[in-house]
Amino acid sequence: MTIMNFTKTILKNLFSKPATTKYPFVKKEYPEGTRGKVEIDIDSCIFCGICSRKCPPNVIEVNREKKEWKIDPFGCISCSACVYACPKKCLFMNQEYTAPAPQKTTNTFTKGE
């Protein structure tokens, strides 16, 4: 049993750079594979609806007639089940997470003719 075990660590921490980053001023760089938010390349979507059936929290809505693809980004659990399931590979994960917002919103993508 000894005392002053932690002194070395404390002194080292005192003279080294902080371990944290100044978040809003310095943006975090996400590694390549981070599952942030789901995005769609709507032009190659065929509106098959597999993603909405595979989605565990059921936040994706696909409307074949209106050529519409909807997601509730605040209900999304970023599991990328839809990305793996997509037959046309038009869904992908953006590294950045959904930004906080005062209201919940739905993102709608429509395919133009």
Binding site: A19, Y30, P31, G33, T34, R35, I77, S78, S80, A81
Partner: peptide, 19 residues
Amino acid sequence: REKILDMFEMTTGGRVIFS
């Protein structure tokens, strides 16, 4: 511990839930 979470994020894409 933070370093391990960064390593998880690098390889699995999630920090806490890995899927």
